[in-house]
Design a protein around this nucleic acid. Structure first.
Lengths: 333, 333
DNA sequence: TTGAAAGCGGTACCAT
DNA sequence: ATGGTACCGCTTTCAA
């Protein structure tokens, strides 16, 4: 059995309520005694029993994160950051990869202070929780918990409008078309924007990839460039864009002189990756997402009111991967 | 506040100890009473308080999994499986992505019944736990906890010997050379096997990749085939091999007629991926790993003795991606 | 078959 | 400044 405050009390020759106070650094205990007690606790390898503590204090200082599909690593970076932010607020993060409803039940039993649910596919079943919950996922939810979402449609629209203002009117979107609702949003945004900009469709307006890997972006672009070269490409994701860049360079095209590229992304591209310069991206920066989520979790714990549904707006982060269309060239088309 | 057994007791008109027994399906309670109590519990949405329960029973029926680097998804499939297996044994899995020592402390406070540590980089710091621990990682550890490891060196050796018996003596290993200890093991195995088989080095015996993605395998193989074609390739990982296959097919080489391929892997390749037939693999099957880990965790919970260090042996899973070298061709070399 | 009561390891209040 | 004690929600004797 592990060490309890009573063991410490015995060893220190004080009552166990004094030990409790000392360990909580209460001003009601003489510094001298405090030091002695802390030393003994250290030596004995004392770890406060979370069960006992949360039983009486009705607080566990723990946040539960539900992440039903670990294999989809889109959320890994998010979770890592949130974990760090919560740590700064003295909260411990516990994760579950069970289905949402089981995971939420587990966290309820463990009396976590709040729960963050990653809704991977936008098709969350109904679940109920006595502990406050926030969902990161699709905003259109029937469930009664606040949702944080990211405006993917608007992001892609932004990209198109930006390119259009620079004179581009032959733009290709490379992404996963018939996939989950998240990808669908991007495609819708693309189509709407084309319409708004009165850009005509060309045969390669939309290129569908087989998967979301770098590799898929590479193959799709290779094929695209065999037939027809757009003046600009918008990529549906970070990974895809890496492959796109590679294929473009293999075709001896220079970015941005021969072709402009914008990628949907939440993480800035690192200089090192693929030896390429960073490329222009549009999306909600990761920090914006994690900060919002952390803020809401803390608010929930403190029983503050939080908004029902929050749609985070994307930012357009332009580097040197886009260029106005040359007027002469444009006229000659 | 959430529902407690006292609420149920009041509503059912019985003592709360009866409720406790009823909910645990004790034979000491009349079936009639039991049914009534269970019904009321249901209706009230009762969730047993894990803190209170584990405080008295000194069991939480929970296993803690420490996974310090979520961003490296090598372990995702493992964790998903283990989670499922433990569920079958009525254990709940809780994960932490903190550093090992903090995570272990958290789980100690929460009184989990056992802890599984994924040692991502083979450089685990010292940590101590009052709760039993098993580590999945490098076998050569100074820490006092049982370790499960996978014999990567032997796996690659197996592959080389197998190919050699089929007449191959110009074999290329494509993998990450100066990387973590796990990759190093494979390279060592390769070199030792070459020596044992008295195969001479050729300039492209070892090809180093920049990363461990499909893409890296593709690029490395492309470059390799520009210069010199081995009769067989051994790939260091699942992802790499996907790229290797692609590059090989682009060079109009047929597997296994023109070139033999074996990949290190724990998961069999799916037929669908890349439209290729499954390729021969060598490694410890995923199920073997998860079964062992689950078994040890359950043993630890039940205070059975477990071995200090377990090295799982790889299996060679041959499909149609390897072929004996044509004798004529071999003689003509 | 049911109820009463002790106690798990802490916190927090009241008394000393 | 320290000690005594009630109590958090539950399991588990023991008595009725």
């Amino acid at each position: 059995m592990s060490v309890t405050i009573k063991d410490i009390a015995k060893s220190a020759g004080v009552s166990y309520s004094t030990v409790s106070k000392a360990l909580l650094n209460s001003p009601l205990v003489k510094d001298d005694t405090k030091r002695k007690i802390v030393a003994i606790a250290q030596e004995l390898g004392y770890q406060p029993n979370a069960a006992a503590r949360s039983l009486v204090s009705k607080k566990s200082n723990t946040i539960g994160v539900v992440w039903p599909n670990v294999e989809r690593d889109v959320h890994a970076a998010l979770i890592t950051k949130i974990n760090k932010r919560l740590e700064e607020h003295n909260y411990t993060t516990l994760m579950s990869i069970n289905n949402i409803s089981d995971a939420v039940n587990t966290f309820n039993r463990f009396q976590v202070d709040a729960i963050l649910v990653f809704d991977g596919d936008g098709k969350t079943d109904y679940f109920s929780s006595t502990v406050p919950v926030v969902v990161y996922g699709l905003a259109k939810h029937e469930n009664p918990y606040p949702v944080v979402d990211v405006n993917r449609k608007f992001a892609i629209k932004n990209a198109v409008h930006y390119l259009n203002r620079m004179g581009h009117n032959k733009i290709t979107y490379i992404g996963d078309l018939p996939s989950d609702p998240f990808q669908v949003e991007k495609v819708i945004g693309f189509k709407q924007a084309l319409h708004e900009c009165q850009i005509e469709n060309h045969p390669n307006s939309l290129i569908s990839v087989g998967g979301m890997d770098q590799y898929d972006g590479y193959m799709a672009t290779k094929k695209l460039l065999e037939t027809e070269k757009p003046t600009a490409i918008i990529c549906g994701s970070h990974d895809l864009s890496k492959g796109v860049l590679r294929a473009v360079s293999e075709n001896n095209l220079k970015v941005p002189d021969d072709i402009s590229i914008i990628s949907y992304d939440n993480l800035p591209h690192k200089e090192s990756e693929g030896g390429n310069k960073p490329i222009s991206i549009v999306g909600v920066p990761l920090d914006k997402i994690t900060d919002k989520l952390t803020e809401i979790l803390i608010d929930l714990v403190n029983k503050k009111e939080v908004e029902d549904s929050i749609m985070l707006s994307p930012e357009l982060n332009i580097t040197n991967s886009c260029k106005p269309i040359n007027i002469d060239k444009k006229l000659s088309l």
